[in-house]
Design a protein around this nucleic acid. Structure first.
Lengths: 364, 364
DNA sequence: CCGATAGCTGTAAACGTTTCCGGGGAGTCT
DNA sequence: AGACTCCCCGGAAACGTTTACAGCTATCGG
């Protein structure tokens, strides 16, 4: 007969065989006791003791191979530094952790190839499921998502007929909320600093801005629209370009990072916020509250979307036969100092300019 | 004889058996071809074809069980939303990804139990290695780190004799740089907004602040020291408390989040920055450059520390017998508008005393 | 007092891959 | 022509776990 399997691996780390041998029982009994299912009191005692003595800790990989699940869930977002994704991530992590799983975070940099490569590697079964928030979507991309061997939930807009669990918001409407608010407080020369138009959110926000302006009968002035990417530096640069050629009395920004960049550019240019230019960001991240003046921002419920996406994913992991579901989180506007109606009246001509410390402290 | 193993699992997903059978070769040959090692041209062709036809993708879990590595590296930090960790994470991720591995990110919330639990779960071999940046360290904690079955690299201060790969900076010295700079530009009533003293960085920065002040012969005024935690809201609240009872002409903050909170509190209180109060943060994150005025900040080289930690970890994964190493990244001060010398001259004694409020405040 | 039943235990198969090893064929050198 | 080398191939073991199955003992009901 051939020699039995090694009881003690060269590694030195104990396996269930080590424990079983030491306890004088079979590996099956040892495994049962360690999993808390069955076993006589005597067996339980012996196995527990042996396990404690050798410091046994089960090998999760072997277990996964057997059980066909890893307890890992992946999240793929464009930019891990964007506070909106941090908030989403926190919400997802809370749900995922409460189900005893761990979260694997991936930054795609918005590059599609990166994301499809990730999808493909996903097929190798290392994660039980995935949440992805793509900012660009192609057909290839879509079929990769649909064909994924593990459950996928998408956060963001998706073709209407795609059979994929999906939680979205309505950022078109979100931009409209911002514009409505600015118009209501007397602003008319409303500028817009957007992200790339070839992204899903960029396109949606552009459409929303144009529609909202049209809804108020305000003619579109191309000089008041500027495009960068969704980062701080680009937002600042784009705003500088815009200010060089136009004179807005309000600025809508496609996310909070851009808004912070815009704020910086405005203050450097000597404009007072909100007296000279009202400013509204989007995503309502912690960053908006950190600024001085605090930024108004359109909340797109990122934490809520993350939470729901995680729940959808967990449900689908539990039951793969569920029909594709779609959930929607409504946007809502949070008004803060950066777009407050100016003190005496919305008219920029009247009123003492100085009551607010922000103006003097900031425009040195 | 018993029946052979299923060629086609109920799952429907192809395994190496499926493609071997389809190609008419053994699983050993199939495996070799798929791994690009060996095989005759004919075999290679057949296997490749079969694999493509059934859409074979290897099961990473089974592979890991065999190879004893997962290609996953974990990172545990206190707060995933703190930009300093974002920068560190980016640097780590770059190194890790270039070695073909993936990064698993974990937020510990600074709670020790959380972290040791993570360490213990680590023992189950799901990751090849781990980078941890603990803000609190106990003995239990330390032994858990030392006993870890997988390689661990610590970012941050650690007991001098701990046999653990470690990359650190000198935040004591970092605080001293800030104080030196403020003193050199004429500030005397220098306040300090710190994080919790029972954390390693909190304690180090406190010690650094006291030492630096003593070095300049400036008596310590307890009213000028305030403690919160390392978050924005706490920094703002702590600064409000401090301003209620003291009148600093400069503020050193234990990190940039605190500094942003402090800036907000200062501006709300009507203080001008830097004229009335100079402000210096720490970590030199993107956030510091986003503010208006831009914040001076002591860089602790977080990206560099992350990069080095990742490299140390990869080296140790490759060779576990390496002796424990320790690397140090020096701090350096980045001066920006928030602590610029006030306009007429840095000399408080010489120049005309009245033009600027700060100068008169300084000669107390 | 005997058969059914319940609970425990051990053997062995299974998860899907890599890899050691031995056998065999083809080519080359002496 | 025989021996040697080199390469390719297939069988089978191994990674460490869970679990189906069957056998065993002890208890209980009839």
């Amino acid at each position: 007969m051939g020699r039995k399997r090694l009881q003690e691996p060269a590694d030195g780390r104990p396996t269930v065989h080590t424990v079983a041998a030491r306890a004088g029982v079979s590996i099956a009994s040892a495994s049962r006791v360690l999993n808390g299912v069955g076993g006589s009191p005597e067996t339980i005692r012996k196995v527990r003791e042996a396990a404690a003595e050798v410091g046994y800790v089960p090998n999760a990989i072997a277990r996964s191979l057997q059980s066909q699940r890893t307890g890992l869930v992946a999240l793929a977002v464009e930019d891990i530094g964007n506070p909106v994704y941090v908030e989403m991530m926190r919400a997802i992590e809370a749900v995922v952790a409460s189900s005893g799983r761990q979260l694997l975070v991936h930054a795609t940099g918005g590059r599609i190839d990166n994301e499809t490569a990730l999808l493909r590697r996903l097929a190798n079964r290392y994660v039980d499921g995935m949440i992805v928030s793509p900012i660009r979507v192609t057909d290839d991309h879509l079929t990769a998502l649909v064909d994924s061997p593990v459950p996928v939930v998408v956060v963001g807009q998706l073709g209407a007929d795609a059979p994929i669990d999906n939680v979205r918001t309505d950022s078109r409407h979100g931009v409209a909320l911002a514009v409505d608010h600015l118009v209501a407080t007397g602003r008319r020369r409303i500028g817009f600093v957007n992200g790339p138009l070839d992204t899903v959110p960029g396109a949606a926000r552009d459409a929303g801005f144009r529609a909202a302006l049209a809804g108020h009968g305000i003619p579109l002035d191309a000089a008041l629209i500027e495009v960068g990417d969704f980062q701080y530096a680009a937002g600042r640069a784009a705003t500088e370009r815009l200010l060089a050629r136009a004179d807005p009395d309000a600025l809508v920004c496609a996310n909070d990072l851009i808004a912070v960049g815009a704020l910086h550019a405005l203050l450097v240019a000597g404009r007072r916020v909100p007296q000279d230019v009202a400013l509204v960001g989007m995503d309502d991240t912690e960053l908006a509250r950190m600024m001085f003046p605090q930024l108004s921002s359109v909340s797109l419920g990122s934490a809520e979307r993350g939470r729901r996406a995680a729940e959808l994913l967990l449900q689908r992991i539990a039951d793969a036969t569920l029909p594709p579901r779609r959930e929607q989180v409504p946007p809502n506007l949070v008004v803060r100092a950066s777009s407050a109606a100016t003190v005496p009246a919305p008219r920029p001509a009247a009123g003492p300019p100085t009551t607010h410390p922000s103006s003097e402290g900031v425009t040195a």
